[in-house]
């Protein structure tokens, strides 16, 4: 599904990623952990098509096609989805209008008929229910005036509607209370399937109690310092990132 070989990325001349190798197969869930500033967000944003990075790699293949140089909207249409760490507020654009435009852009690409207002509403209602969200949220401007938790749920709602093949989740757990975390985790788990892959970027391991990963990678100073299974995340929770290069200790578990 995703095959990254020797990915190096810099921003304004400063090296952020210094040679990443990562292979994610369909059906897998990978967690990418690491201290602040280790390049976790840069990696997923680059994969989603954010511009402004100087990137080179031996290969960044998604379903066999080279990703670098592909426009962000094209990646989305081919099934890549990024849940933003900081979802962007768009005053003046109703959430429902935005979601329908996105959904139909992707359906057109998949040669599926566009959904009309009624069919779309039926689809979105089922997803809202899944995430325990109120319908009134559809008619508010995208993310504008949303609480932190509402914004994160809105990202998961979009993911549930767009049904990506490769979901990249950038700290979708940060700032959530335990109930909201369970809802977000439920939304992610509902998407798990043998045809899909999920990459979770997280600072803390508590999300991984609810979304159990197949692989855990620790990113530090622009490189993957360690990889392992779920046990690695549990170990990190205990020891922090202190023994990873340029790392910082994780906060006490009681705060997480």
């Amino acid at each position: 599904m995703l095959d990254i070989r020797n990915l190096q990325v810099s921003v304004d001349g400063k090296a952020i990623l210094k040679g990443i190798d990562l292979q994610v197969k369909a059906g897998e869930v990978h967690a990418i952990m690491g201290p602040n500033g280790s390049g976790k967000s840069t990696l997923v944003q680059l994969l989603a098509g954010r511009e402004g990075y100087a990137a080179r790699a031996d290969a960044v293949l998604y379903q066999g096609a080279e990703l670098l140089g592909m426009a962000a909207e094209e990646r989305a249409r081919q099934g890549i989805f990024l849940a933003f760490q900081y979802p962007v507020e768009i005053p003046g654009v109703a959430n429902v209008y935005f979601l329908k435009a996105a959904c139909n852009a992707i359906r057109r690409h998949r040669n599926l008929p566009e959904l009309d207002a009624i069919d779309f509403l039926a689809l979105i209602r089922s997803r809202l229910k899944l995430l325990g969200m109120d319908e009134s949220l559809l008619y508010r401007p995208v993310n504008a005036g949303f609480s932190g938790g509402e914004k994160k749920r809105n990202e998961i709602l979009q993911m549930a509607v767009l049904e990506p093949t490769l979901a990249l989740l950038d700290e979708s757990d940060s700032g959530l209370d335990i109930d909201a975390l369970k809802v977000v985790a439920g939304g992610i788990n509902a998407l798990r399937s043998p045809q899909r892959a999920i990459v979770l970027v997280t600072h803390y391991q508590r999300l991984l109690d609810y979304v159990v990963p197949d692989r855990v990678h620790v990113l530090a100073d622009g490189r993957i310092a360690r990889s392992g299974d779920r046990q690695l995340a549990i170990e990190l929770e205990r020891t922090g990132y202190a023994d990873t290069p340029a790392g910082h200790p994780a906060p006490p578990a009681s705060r997480a």
Binding site: A48, R50, A71, A76, F81, P87, V88, G92, I106, P141
Partner: peptide, 22 residues
Amino acid sequence: QVFYLRSRGIEQAKARTMLSRA
């Protein structure tokens, strides 16, 4: 905002139009 819309599959020109309209 443009990138957010594009990352959802909305093409650049359409994204710019949506934001201008808003």
